[in-house]
Amino acid sequence: MELAAFAFFALLALGSAIVVVGHRNPVYSTMSLVVALLATAGLFVLLGSPFLAVLQVLLYTGAIVVLFLFVIMLLNVGRERPAAGRGTMQTWVAGVGALVFFGAMARLIWESYGEAEAPRLTEEFVATRGLAELLFTTYLLPFEIIGLLLLVAVVAASWVARRPTPDEEEEAP
């Protein structure tokens, strides 16, 4: 049962990830990123953390991806123009680099863990209550800092994206 669910979500994630990097239309790329993120949410459930799955759906697909779509449509980003000249070489180097990275990681993972089974899922591990206790005791300071970080990010984003003043526009090349 877990195997079937894992295979489903893993294939879905891999397939949509390939569409994300392969499709020239940014809107299609973004929509398949949604699929990849939802598949990852499914994997989070299989890994025994439904809380993370809910966060993933709410935060990533609900907020971040909407922001992406908003900017894509605001800037009217069209289809990417096809590679001009230098494209093929770059593609080969990137492809070989990515494959070498994956090969090295796969070997490392396999030699370290092989078929090691995870400990049986306990009710305590899955329950969200434990996470909440961790969040408000051990991780209280990082939690507050994250709140501050989000505030700073919002202020910075609205400052950076503001309409430029006239003399700034003159400086623009």
């Binding site: 994997l43 890994l47 370290s112 092989g114 078929e115 995870a118």
Partner: peptide, 9 residues
């Protein structure tokens, strides 16, 4: 059950 290394892979 699925070995954890598959998730890592």
């Amino acid at each position: 059950t699925v070995p954890v290394s598959w998730y890592l892979l």
